[in-house]
């Protein structure tokens, strides 16, 4: 296999509240020999909220991010479902609407950039599965996750709307997603089958509709716990933040205690590939997760 090379769009979360997401992603890339160029010029994707305020401006700023991946001539990979969705929505809008593309490029020209549409955008999860391959990953496993029941939590913005994502997510069916399950299986963990795996965590209304947000996360976490999961794993740091940070308040709303570690997808892979405890960064979790490293490597 020729070496895989990607331009990494980190997003805001990996640079702030989830440093463990960035370090574990880079550790996985290193272990697998994937070359990563971090797009240090890339700004926030707007996370769907800037889109609510000013859709055109959000397209301009996302197009600028993509321009930098195009300059490197590389596929842009994301490590956040919401970055993936919003970047992909801009790409789709510009690639299918010449008038919008012209209006956006008129703005970009003011800072010496031009959006061409030459770079693909895909989430790291699908780069691992569809480009690197599960069999190849399997060969690199040094710490099998065989003692863990792992509940995959897919996160909305990687799987819906399926038409937008079908070329970048291997045609994942949003009602029966399998990628994370297959990845867990390749790392010799036991994927937990539960109905909430493709549901919404409620992160985006955390501030303005807090009860809704807490109930949605509560439903998912309780479903995972009741199906004997030892941990939840998600490719989205926003799902991670909601599900890891708020277990106390969510438990109060749901009327029962909830305690379950929520890992980022790259943390799980890094663990199986033998990355260091520091790189995996379980100490950054609010819900105690450090024991997972000890248990896995014991």
């Amino acid at each position: 296999m020729s070496q895989l090379k990607y331009a990494l769009f980190t997003g805001c979360t990996a640079k702030q509240s989830t440093p463990e997401l960035l370090s574990s992603t880079l550790a996985v890339a290193e272990k697998l020999g994937i070359e990563i160029t971090i797009l240090e010029e890339a700004s926030c994707c707007g996370a769907s909220h800037l889109q609510d305020f000013d859709e055109f401006l959000a397209h301009v700023l996302n197009a600028r991010n993509i321009c930098y991946a195009e300059k490197h001539g590389l596929t842009m990979i994301t490590i956040c479902n919401t970055c993936q969705l919003n970047s992909q929505m801009t790409k789709h809008a510009l690639d299918t609407n010449p008038d919008l593309k012209a209006r956006v490029n008129e703005k970009l020209a003011e800072v010496g950039l031009e959006y061409k549409g030459t770079s693909e955008i895909k989430h790291f999860l699908y780069a691992l599965i569809d480009d690197y391959g599960l069999d190849a990953i399997k060969d690199k496993v040094v710490t099998p996750l065989s003692r863990f029941n792992i509940a995959p939590f897919y996160g909305c913005h990687n799987i819906r709307p399926s038409e937008l994502h079908e070329h970048s997510n291997g045609g994942e069916n949003p009602y029966v997603p399998t990628s994370l399950d297959r990845l867990i299986d390749a790392l010799e963990g036991h994927p937990v089958d539960y109905a909430s795996k493709n549901k919404c965590c409620g992160f985006h209304v955390e501030l303005q509709a807090n009860h809704t947000s807490e109930v949605l996360t509560g439903n998912a976490l309780i479903d995972a716990v009741d199906n004997n999961a030892d941990m939840v794993v998600t490719p989205c740091p926003l799902c991670h933040l909601k599900m890891d940070t708020y277990q106390d308040s969510v438990g109060k709303v749901m009327g029962r205690d909830i305690e379950i570690p929520v890992l980022h997808m790259p943390q799980m892979v890094a663990l199986a590939l033998g990355a260091t405890e520091e790189e995996i960064g379980l100490k950054f979790h609010v819900q105690k997760a450090k024991d997972i490293y000890k248990q896995a490597t014991a």
Binding site: D52, C156, H157, R160, P161, K199, C200, H204
Partner: peptide
């Protein structure tokens, strides 16, 4: 519209391929 959780279940569900959340974003704007 501010209670929309942005899950895109509506866009996926619509048998007429209307994409309701796209209209919700327009209403926001």
């Amino acid at each position: 519209v501010w209670d929309c959780v942005k899950c895109f279940e509506c866009a996926q569900a619509c048998p007429k391929e209307i994409n309701p959340i796209e209209k919700i974003t327009k209403l926001h704007n």
